[in-house]
C-alpha cells in the first residue's frame, strides 16, 4: 500500500514537470507569432521617435543656488516651501513639480550651510521620489545616511548633492524618464527665480534684475521641453501657458526690446518697474505650483 502511494506520488510529480515544460513550449510558440511589420514601417517609427526628441541640459540647482548666493541673496527659511505640505501633492504632476521645488530648497539650504533644514528637504525628496518612481536614487547609495554623517563638512555635503544629481540624471536617462525630468526641473526653476524675485524690495535689486533676465533663457528652454512631454494634459498646457506668458512679458520689456536681437547675448539690467512686473508674475506662478 505504502509503495503504491509513493509510486502514485512519483507519477503525479512526473506529470506536473512534464506539463510545466510543455506549457513553456506553448508560450514560446506564441511569442514568435508577431504580426508582420515591414522594415520600412519600423524604420519610419524609429526615425519619428528620434526626430521628435528635444534634448537639453539645464544648469544644476546647485549652480543656480551658488549664483544667487554670489549675487548677495541671503537665506530666509520663509522663502522655501514648507515640508509639511508634502501630503497636499496628490497628482503625479504636482508631485513631480514639488520634487523640483524641494530640490531647489535643498540646494539653497546647503549653499547657505543650513544643514538641519537641508536634511529635512532631503528626506522630503526621498518621500516624494518614491511617489514618482525615483526611489532608487536614494536607496542605492545610502545618501541620507551619508548626508547626516557629514553635516559638519560643507565640501562633503556638496559632493553628496552632486552625487544625488548624478544618480538622478543616470536613472532618468537609463529608464527613459525624460518627461519627468522636464517637469521636476520646471519646479526647480520656478522655485529658484521665486527666491530671486522675493528680494526685489531689498538692496540687491540691480543684480536681481540681471538674474531674472538670465533665467528667462531657461524659461524658453523649459517651454520647449514641456511641449515635448508626451502626456499633454490641461495641467501641463496651463503650465506651458504661464511660463510662456512670463517669457513673453520679459521680451516685451523696454530694456529688452531696445537691444534688438543682441538681447540674446547680454545680461540685461531691468528697471525697478520691470522687476516689479516680472516679480509679480513669478510669485503668482510659484504659488500656482506649490499650493
Amino acid at each position: 500500500m505504502r509503495i503504491l502511494k509513493q509510486f502514485t506520488l512519483f507519477i503525479m510529480l512526473l506529470s506536473f514537470f512534464t506539463l510545466a515544460n510543455g506549457c513553456g513550449e506553448s508560450i514560446e510558440k506564441k511569442e514568435v507569432d508577431f504580426p508582420e511589420i515591414s522594415q520600412d514601417e519600423i524604420e519610419e517609427a524609429i526615425y519619428n521617435e528620434v526626430s521628435a526628441d528635444y534634448e537639453f541640459i539645464p544648469p544644476s540647482t546647485l549652480q543656480v543656488a551658488s549664483i544667487f548666493k554670489k549675487a548677495g541673496l541671503s537665506y530666509d527659511l520663509k522663502l522655501t516651501n514648507p515640508t509639511s505640505r508634502i501630503d497636499e501633492y496628490s497628482t503625479k504632476l504636482s508631485q513631480s513639480l514639488a520634487f523640483g521645488v524641494y530640490s531647489s530648497d535643498l540646494a539653497y539650504s546647503v549653499i547657505h550651510e543650513k544643514y538641519n533644514e537641508a536634511s529635512e528637504f532631503l528626506k522630503t525628496l526621498r518621500t516624494l521620489g518614491s511617489k514618482i518612481g525615483l526611489e532608487t536614487i536614494f536607496n542605492s547609495s545610502g545618501l541620507i545616511e551619508r548626508f547626516e554623517a557629514n553635516v559638519a563638512n560643507q565640501d562633503s555635503i556638496i559632493d553628496i548633492l552632486i552625487l544625488l544629481q548624478e544618480n538622478t540624471d543616470d536613472y532618468i536617462e537609463e529608464n527613459g524618464k525624460e518627461d519627468l525630468s522636464v517637469i521636476y526641473y520646471t519646479g526647480a526653476w520656478i522655485e529658484g527665480i521665486y527666491m530671486g524675485a522675493n528680494t526685489v524690495m531689498k538692496d540687491q535689486e540691480k543684480r536681481v534684475g540681471v538674474l531674472i533676465s538670465e533665467q528667462m533663457t531657461l524659461g524658453e528652454i523649459l517651454v520647449k521641453g514641456l511641449k515635448h512631454v508626451e502626456d499633454q494634459n490641461d495641467d501641463i498646457q496651463d503650465l506651458i501657458d504661464d511660463i510662456q506668458d512670463l517669457v513673453d512679458t520679459y521680451y516685451n520689456l523696454e530694456s529688452v526690446t531696445t537691444l534688438g536681437e543682441e538681447a540674446d547675448y547680454i545680461d540685461i539690467v531691468l528697471t525697478k518697474d520691470e522687476i516689479i512686473l516680472m516679480s509679480g508674475k513669478i510669485v503668482e506662478l510659484r504659488e500656482s505650483i506649490v499650493q
Binding site: S51, E55, F56, S60, E166, D169, D170, E173, I221
Partner: peptide, 28 residues
C-alpha cells in the same frame, strides 16, 4: 564641477541628418 549629462542615441540612416542638444549656460 558637474552640471549635467546627456547621452544622445541615434540610428544611422541612408541619408544625413542632425540631432541637436541645447545647453543653457549661465552667469558668464
Amino acid at each position: 564641477r558637474y552640471d549635467g549629462v546627456k547621452t544622445t542615441q541615434f540610428n544611422y540612416k541612408p541619408y544625413e541628418y542632425i540631432k541637436e542638444v541645447e545647453i543653457a549656460t549661465i552667469q558668464n
